[in-house]
Design a binder for these strands. Structure first.
Lengths: 347, 347
DNA sequence: TTGTACGCGTTATCAA
DNA sequence: TTGATAACGCGTACAA
């Protein structure tokens, strides 16, 4: 690998001149410019980005922290492809780091990106608490943005989606269609998203004067199997219901499978609505309605905001994005579901 | 951000000593070690990885080049999650760079990773030719591995899967079940994978003494819609067939949809087999058999090989992995498919 | 066991 | 318009 020094020697100029030619800053005569370009060509010179980044204290890299629990899903694909594409538009490079399976590891991932002198960091947190994240943002000068959590202190550093409102709307939709006994399958209750969805459901029922019933609310764990178990429990308990709102598509799919197995057709006998509308959902749309998570919109906004923080000129827009309810009315048999332990939706 | 110099001053020692404490190399007395650790703590010191990498000429980073056409699929998720997880096991960091939509851009992506002084590079090529890649590998001292292409010159630098053999086996399977009129839907013919799959089909027929028929071979473009069109063309042409081998699952899904629309049930009337067995396939398994692409195995091997090249001690194993044919016999209605332009399988 | 001094390949500040 | 030269933060012979 040839260095700038060698190019300079070849061109009969100094290092500084070569640097000026490359950066386009400062005055260089056309004649020497040509010489330098020729020398670069001859030497097959390529700049060492490490050295450049060290000298400029910028890396043109943006870090992204996500737990690998999310890696295996189309939700993640959408998130990642949107982020990568959008950052490249702005001449930045994405670095993906695994947040693994604890708050400590998520924090270590952030540290690593900081140590690498990333220009900015995006966190899609799973375990880190709001307060810790607020603290981290305080502590470092690099812009750090959080997706899908509402921060307390740095509200302009987070982008989230109105999970509660979405759940409210979905419940409202079911009520409007005449449903009164609506079962709800929660996500893991350590997740804010799960809690928001639950609370939207409750609020919609209350608002319509429908009494909340504990026996209709079953705890799930985001996975298809937990959705199936939830239905099993309802059926074994002899609890009747005409609709199911599951906190994500996977559980909805598990629920549909279990319902069909019990000879209950979806959506003829029971309506089922899920969340996230993962891209695989087209396979299922005939049986499953879903509330689309606006992950692309969120990534768009996060990155726009980050870029404007880096390049100056901060433009403030909304932090909260809304979800669309996608409803299908056609009919088909239920799907088959493998025994994946992974989770394709949001936390 | 505090530097090593500041820590040294705080601890009343020299920079070199701090460095020794951090790296664990060289002798340092316990007493000064403690002082240094204390100073590090107090200063909130973090090493600057840019500087470290520049000084050592190592980055602990491994680059991965993939075209973003692949980003939106579960095939990619599997590839990426395997790579990230495996590299972290070896203390390396993955950097994903978009290969975009041309050979030139794929090459630029490689250049970028080289400029970043990545320790090694993995390419999952879409456009780059074998010869160009062989040339690139010659040209740089960093290990560069190619997935899913057979290189001519650097055979130990590529890992591929026996697409032809897999296709051969799938065809054989259909023949053994009594099928004689087997339609074949190709992938884009600019792709080596597509050609290999086609040739496996042809070879199996020939071997069994079944005449090849041009009218049974339809060109597809990897997408569900192109699979559906292929079936449409066969049906409109009045061509009879009892089985379809589609060069990927998406086209198989499109084919199934179109067949069902024409009142032809799968698999009762026509058997359909696809390739790649994308994780979404469980939804479809009742109707679709698929040949699983061993992407995880390939990534495993690539990374093992890379690591052993970097850490010394080169262990040579097989380059060519085989695919399993996954066959299901149960029955269900066909799925719905959106109008995605993306492609979830391999190229 | 510790410190000095130089090198890694850039950028950036001053003079010239 | 150009060239020295000092950062940038760290690793590492070599000397002490």
């Amino acid at each position: 690998m040839s260095t700038m020094q060698e190019v300079a020697k070849k061109a009969g100029v100094s290092k500084a001149t070569v640097s000026r030619v490359l950066s386009g800053k400062g005055y260089v005569s056309e004649a020497t410019k040509d010489q330098v370009y020729k020398a670069i060509e001859e030497a097959g010179y390529r700049p060492n980005l490490l050295a450049r980044n060290l000298a400029t204290n910028k890396s043109q890299c943006i870090g992204l922290v996500v737990t690998n629990t999310l890696y295996n899903g189309s939700y993640f694909s959408e998130l990642l492809s949107k982020a990568a594409q959008k950052l490249e538009e702005h001449g930045r490079q994405l670095i993906l780091v695994d947040g693994k399976h604890s708050a400590a590891e998520e924090q270590a991932a952030i540290q690593f990106l900081l140590d690498l002198r990333c220009d900015a960091i995006i966190i899609y947190p799973r375990f880190l608490s709001i307060d810790v994240m607020d603290g981290i943002i305080d502590h470092y000068k690099q812009p750090i943005m959080v997706v899908n959590r509402r921060l307390r202190k740095h509200q302009s550093h987070c982008i989230c989606c109105d999970h509660k409102g979405a759940s409210f709307k979905a419940t409202q939709y079911l009520i409007a269609r005449g449903h009164r006994d609506i079962a709800f399958i929660t996500g893991s209750l350590d997740s804010p998203t799960a809690l928001e969805r639950l609370s939207g459901y409750k609020e919609a029922l209350t608002q319509q004067g429908i009494a909340l019933r504990d026996d209709l609310i079953i705890n799930g764990k985001w996975t298809p199997n937990s959705g199936a178990s939830a239905i099993e429990r309802l059926l074994n308990g002899g609890i009747t219901f005409s609709a199911v709102l599951a906190s994500n598509d996977e559980m909805a799919i598990g629920a549909i499978k279990q319902l069909n197995q019990a000879g209950i057709a979806v959506p003829q006998n029971v309506s089922v609505i899920g969340f996230d509308n993962i891209p695989t959902a087209p396979y299922l749309l005939p049986a499953l309605s879903s509330v689309k998570d606006p992950v692309s919109d969120m990534m768009n906004e996060v990155i726009d905001r980050l870029i404007s923080m880096l390049d100056g000129g901060y433009l403030s827009k909304d932090n909260i994005f809304t979800s669309d309810l996608l409803v299908r009315d056609s009919v088909a048999d239920g799907p088959f579901w493998g025994n994946s332990q992974n989770h394709a939706g949001c936390f």
